[in-house]
Structure formats: C-alpha cells, structure tokens
Computed example of a mutant assay.
Amino acid sequence: MCGRYVMAKAIGDLVAEAEAEADANLELRQSWNVAPTSDVPVVLERLVDGATVRQVHVARWGLVPAWAKDISVGVRAFNARSETLLEKPTFRDAVRARRCAVPMEGYYEWKAGPGNTRQPYFVHRRDGKLSWFAGLYEWWADPAVPAGDPDRWLLSTSVITLAAPDPQDDDPVLAGLGSLHDRLPLPLSPAALADWTAPGTLSNTAALDLLAQVLGQAYTTAAAWRIDPVDAAVGNVRNDGPWLLEPGPEEPAEQEMLPFEAMAKD
C-alpha cells in the first residue's frame, strides 16, 4: 500500500530531475505528509506536433475514470494492484493508454505492533534523489460545468502497487520491505520510467508485456532504498513539516488513519 508520502522539492528541482517541461504557472505545495485526494505532481509524455514531450502536471491523487458520475470514485482508487489492472473497470483503459510516473522523495509505511499500535517508517533513496513510481492518469469532465470551461476538466492519478518481497530475502533491504507490508508501490528505474510513460495506446497483450517488463526491475530498484523509523506524528494527516522525518524511536505508536485508508485493500 502507498497511502502517505513526501514531495517537498521545489517545482524547478522536480522538472530538472524529470528532464521535463512544465507550465510557468504550475504550482505545487510542499508537503511532508501527502495524503490521498491531495494535489500531487505526475510526469507523463505526450505527442506534440509529432514529437514526444515529457511534461509535469498536477493531478488529484485518487483516479476518477472518464465514465464516473462524480469524483467520489477516486476516494478509494489511490492505489491500483498490478495483478488486476486489466480486469478492473476503473484502471483498464488507463493502463493501456494513460500511464504516468508519480515522483516522491519517499513514502511512509506502518509496521504493526502490539494491539492497535503501529510504528511509522520512511522508505526512500539513500542519495536523497526522487523516486519514480508507476502510475495511471485520467481526465474527467465535470458534468456540472459547461463545455469549454477549463475548470470542467479534472486530472487524477493512481499509484500502482505490487507484492512485497519475501521477508526472508537474502537482501536486507528487500527483506525489510517484505516484513514492513505485503505491498509496495511499483518503482521505476530510469529506463523503466521512459518505457512506462511512452505515449500510445497498447493492446491488452502489449500492456501486459510492458507491465511484466516494469515488474521485472522493481526489486532491483527497491534494493537501493533505506528504511528509517520516523516520528509517530506522521500518522496524523494534519501534521506536516520536515520535522516528521526526524529519527523516531522504534516503538509502536497509535496511528490516525483517514477512513478510506483504513478501508483500502492495497
């Protein structure tokens, strides 16, 4: 599951690391406690005058498919299981035609302790650079807003997850990820980032082949991460700031979860 994460880099730094372009008026709020339904950056590629252009956009975290009657569909669609992407109506069109990358400085995961307690950990790259995770995006037209009004269109996204490594893996990082949670967001190496975001509509077979290719590099990419205990205050979505990343005691603490985070099966 990926239910909270950190994205506090300035938009200029994000654009530089993504080797992308962005609208001069693009605004992005720094956050050390990003939660579902927040506005988040996504990186996607589009064909512009016959050339492939990588762009940074801001999307609502929680995928709202084009056929949805309202945005409430996205409340529980902030994660998408890799195993069932082509089976679920919410995701199957997007995986064939609207693939993106979701940049993060790292994400939080909670390890269960005695009773209802959980200890939060921050999973991130050792070198401090951004991690890129496979995502999907959709454009949704609000039927209550007149056609032609730019406010009619909502861009939304979901982060794809995969099964976590075996807790008994020989690699200590992969074993740690496996003992932390049974799911993890699908990471992208630089090469996988380019392949995943390449524009174009794929057949079901081609989409499955691409997904298999990206899944094949996931654990190798994840093995370069760190897993650090952090302040238990991150469990409250109202808390935000760099102080949340300060080392925390490896002791279980109570976690306040958003209602739809508690319901999510990813």
Results as ranks from 00 to 15, higher is better:
Ala175Glu: 05
Asp240Gly: 05
Leu188Met: 01
Ile160Asp: 12
Asp151Lys: 12
Leu162Thr: 12
Asp182Gly: 11
Val173Trp: 02
Gln217Tyr: 01
Pro249Gln: 13
Asp170Leu: 12
Gly148Asn: 14
Asp170Thr: 13
Thr220Ser: 10
Gln217Gly: 11
Arg183Met: 08
Ala218Ser: 13
Leu245Ala: 03
Gln217Glu: 15
Leu186His: 00
Asp231Val: 10
Gly248Asn: 04
Ala194Trp: 06
Asp151Val: 06
Arg183Lys: 14
Gly216Leu: 07
Trp139Cys: 11
Pro199Gln: 01
Asp195Gln: 08
Ala232Pro: 06
Pro172Leu: 07
Trp140Lys: 09
Gly200Thr: 05
Pro190Thr: 09
Ala163Asp: 08
Trp139Gly: 09
Gly135Arg: 03
Pro242Gln: 04
Asp151Thr: 12
Ile227Tyr: 00
Thr201Ala: 13
Arg226Gln: 09
Ala224Asp: 15
Leu202Trp: 02
Ala232Arg: 07
Val234Asn: 00
Arg152Met: 07
Glu251Lys: 15
Gly248Ile: 06
Arg226Thr: 07
Val173Ser: 03
Ser203Lys: 09
Pro185Lys: 13
Leu184His: 15
Ala206Asn: 02
Arg226His: 09
Tyr137Lys: 07
Ala233Leu: 14
Asp228Val: 01
Pro172Val: 14
Leu215Thr: 14
Thr157His: 01
Pro150Met: 04
Ala224Phe: 02
Pro167Ser: 08
Ser158Pro: 03
Ala198Glu: 15
Asp142Ile: 12
Ser158Arg: 04
Glu250Thr: 09
Leu244Pro: 12
Leu177Val: 05
Leu211His: 03
Asn239Met: 13
Pro229Lys: 02
Ala212Asp: 14
Ala192Leu: 06
Tyr219His: 15
Asp228Tyr: 01
Leu245Ser: 05
Val145Ile: 15
Val237Tyr: 01
Asp171Leu: 11
Ala207Lys: 04
Thr205Pro: 01
Leu184Glu: 08
Ile160Phe: 05
Leu180Glu: 10
Pro167Phe: 07
Ala223His: 11
Tyr137Asn: 05
Ser179Val: 06
Gly178Val: 10
Asp170Gln: 13
